[in-house]
């Protein structure tokens, strides 16, 4: 039921892939790749983060537990990865302060791979965010977490079908039990190293005049900021009048947005 990675390495044996993982915690040094963990609140992003890095980022069963970005590292197949745990977000379009941290990093932090952690029990709403992320990046992996819970509720997910519809690799996992983490790592590794390619599902702005307006703005933005990523998204936000994006464009800091809110490992003094 899970998507088989397509390269010729030894994927069958869990033991071997296990031994390829080295949890680096915060001892990171210079990472070869940056991987972002995005997703709706309370889908288990921090749990995935902990499973992979061996750190103990706080988890809790309510939306909004993580409010600042946290970084950790792991090494896989000899390459060093930096994993960034982000606050949960319902959408890239509207944001409270904590969500903005996530949004800015996904959009402007230039992660090499974005893992969207989704909850199978609330699939439609989670796909809403996943589709928005796929809109802006080619390098995304969807991790359907909480599969143990889904099974207990009699819900089954067709991972292969989902991968086909979304156009990106899909991994079914239960992070708290460590299930599916190996496969997630393999997919991350393949994607970061360019061994797998994908053609994400894209939406059409099927609203009259919107598409033309966006195209016009994208052309202008390309002109003014040749290196800026996600111009379509920025154009959409400008059209909607997002004050923070307008501000960022007018001051030219749009290219550096992903660098704010730099990692604050533990924000609280008392380890809460």
């Amino acid at each position: 039921m899970m998507k088989q990675p397509d390269s010729g390495k030894c994927k069958g044996c869990a033991a071997s892939s296990d031994s390829k993982l080295e949890k680096l915690g915060v001892k990171l040094g210079q990472a070869d790749f940056v991987v972002a963990l995005a997703g709706n609140p309370n889908t288990g992003k921090s749990t995935v983060f902990n499973a992979v890095t061996g750190l103990r980022q706080h988890t809790g069963n309510w939306p909004g537990k993580t409010i600042a970005r946290a970084e950790g590292g792991f090494s896989y197949n000899g390459k060093k990865f930096k994993l960034v745990d982000l606050p949960g977000t319902y959408s890239l379009l509207s944001a409270t302060e904590d969500e903005e941290v996530a949004r800015n990093f996904i959009l402007f932090g230039r992660p090499d791979v974005t893992v969207v952690v989704i909850d199978p029990m609330r699939l439609e709403r989670n796909l809403n965010l996943a589709l928005q992320v796929l809109q802006i990046t080619d390098k995304a992996i969807v991790c359907v977490n909480l599969m143990d819970e889904a099974r207990a509720h009699g819900v089954s997910i067709d991972g292969r079908g989902l991968a086909r519809d979304l156009g990106v690799p899909v991994v079914l996992a239960a992070a708290r039990q460590g299930e599916g983490i190996d496969q997630l790592l393999t997919e991350i590794d393949d994607m970061a190293n360019g061994r797998s390619s994908c053609t994400p599902h894209r939406l059409k702005y099927d609203i009259p005049t919107v598409q033309e307006s966006i195209e016009e703005l994208v052309a202008a933005l390309t002109d003014a900021f040749p290196t800026m990523p996600h111009r379509e998204w920025v154009a959409l936000r400008l059209l909607e009048g997002d004050p923070r994006i307008i501000q960022a464009v007018s001051t030219g800091e749009i290219g550096t947005l992903g660098e704010d809110h730099v990692a604050t490992g533990t924000i609280s003094a008392c380890g809460n």
């Binding site: 959408s91 199978p120 699939l123 809403n128 089954s156 067709d158 079908g161 989902l162 519809d165 599902h201």
Partner: peptide, 20 residues
């Protein structure tokens, strides 16, 4: 715009999720 995204999500979800 959000309605459109949701319509897509709902379509993809219904194709790949079964509740038994």
């Amino acid at each position: 715009w959000v309605e459109m995204v949701y319509a897509d999500s709902a379509r993809i979800a219904s194709r790949n999720m079964v509740q038994q």
